[in-house]
């Protein structure tokens, strides 16, 4: 290793961010617009399979998707990871879970968060529902998180 490895490192603050805005396009844009109306929509392929969040193309055969269907704001946990102590950038400051959630009637899963529960209550197959953010930004964050549906 070179000599500079022994030197004290100079430090400067730095904010890691995208310094530009993205256009979501007609499919993802429609999905976000509907989220701000507290409605969940997905896209449907010619086999009748539904993707939520809305996909622009079929991940298997690349079929272009443009038909929208509304789905219920409830779904099933496909996998989860419990975070006892949230870290730097996590949006929820108390213990929560990241989860893959398959909305009812759909053929894919959505990555999101589950809050206001205990780790022991979570399992694959658990039913959860959307909790909306009061302030809408037309982003995936219009869903604040999911909560377990009481039996």
């Amino acid at each position: 290793m070179t000599k500079s490895a022994d030197k004290e490192l100079l430090r400067a603050s730095f904010k890691l961010e995208y310094p530009y805005e993205r256009s979501p396009g007609p499919v993802i844009g429609k999905f976000f617009e509907e989220l701000s109306n507290e409605v969940l929509v997905g896209t449907k392929n010619s086999k009748g399979e539904i993707f939520v969040p809305a996909a622009e193309f079929d991940p298997k055969d690349s079929e272009h998707l443009s038909e929208f269907v509304e789905v219920k704001n409830e779904g099933v946990v496909q996998s989860y990871t419990w975070i006892e102590k949230p870290r730097a950038h996590h949006l929820i400051k108390e213990s929560f879970a990241f989860a893959l959630i398959s909305m009812d009637g759909t053929n894919s899963a959505m990555l999101h968060m589950i809050a206001n529960c205990k780790e022991e209550e979570l399992e694959i197959g658990k039913r959860v529902k959307v909790i909306w953010n009061q302030e809408k930004t037309q982003t995936i964050r219009d869903i604040k998180y999911f909560e377990i549906i009481d039996d």
Binding site: R22, P24, I28, F32, P53, S79, Y80, T81, I83, R87, H89, H90, L91, F98, A99, L100, M110, L111, H112, M113, T139, I140, R141
Partner: peptide
Amino acid sequence: YYMSPLWPDKTSLAAL
């Protein structure tokens, strides 16, 4: 659009 705004860290994605 669908992932990074939720800040899923690399460890959490692997954990899923």
